[in-house]
Amino acid sequence: MLLDPTFLAIQFLNGLQLASLLFLLAVGLSVVFGLMGFINLAHGTLYMIGAYIGLSVARSTGSFWLALVAAPVAVALLGMVFHVVLLRHMQAASPMKQVLVTFGLIFVGLDSVRYIWGNYSHGIDLPAVLAGGVSVLGETYPIYRLFIIGLGLAVLAALHWGLERTRLGALVRAGVDDRETAAALGIDVGLAFFAVFCLGCALAGLAGVVAAPVLSVYPGMDMSVLILTLIVVVIGGPGSLKGAALGALVIGMAQTFGQVLVPALASVMIYAVMAAVLLARPGGLVRARHG
């Protein structure tokens, strides 16, 4: 049964779906860590808040699609405020202070969510188009999971295009290559990175809504993905788009196949993968370009 091709194909799709979610989450965290040198442990909190905002929008308007747009926008705005009020002033602080402050924010987020939405688990209903299943090698597979995979790939393609082909992308690459020279040519590197930070927050919010129908929405849902996301960032190589995608793929697959093939070792599987990757490549799979 374990080597049945249909079973493996289904698990492969599950792995891709998890990788897709992890990518949406990791890309923002990786960029903030790699470009701005900031460790934001509260990135998962943005994901959870995205899920809750999506929940409220979907319930009050009846539209999942509206939730899919509104949550990222709202989370980006929240990230913006968060950056201006707190993060900006923490940039020069030691990593330990950053970790402590953003770790504290996790609990603030948790209690805020409990206060506003209550201490229950919620689900989001899917629109009819995404609710059914399709046949994959004779098995029925949920369309929604394929939708998540497609969305992840679309976001990856859009980010790649944005980084390589747009003016903001060129400004960001210049800032990453050589921050001082970019500034001495009149480029506001801080502003370009701030735009990227907000985009990363929006993607965390998007990941939250997208995950809601599959993983359900509950206080603390951020903690279960935070560790996985951090591992993705570390093994992918901080500050690299390609690294976030590759790291998400490795961890998505390791987690999914670990659980079905060696259930007894599933919980240590991803850590073993992380250790192996870091032993071979201490800087992660993809080295970000730095001036």
């Binding site: 060129a170 690459r173 210049a174 990453v176 290559d177 050589d178 001082e180 020279t181 970019a182 500034a183 001495a184 040519l185 009149g186 480029i187 506001d188 590197v189 370009r289 001036g291």
Partner: peptide, 23 residues
């Protein structure tokens, strides 16, 4: 800040040239 100084009308060519390799 540096970017405002540059925008005031000064262009800087650093010793290392500072060419952006990924551009």
């Amino acid at each position: 800040p540096p970017h405002r100084i540059a925008r005031a009308g000064i262009a800087y060519v650093p010793e290392s040239r500072g060419i952006f390799p990924s551009l």
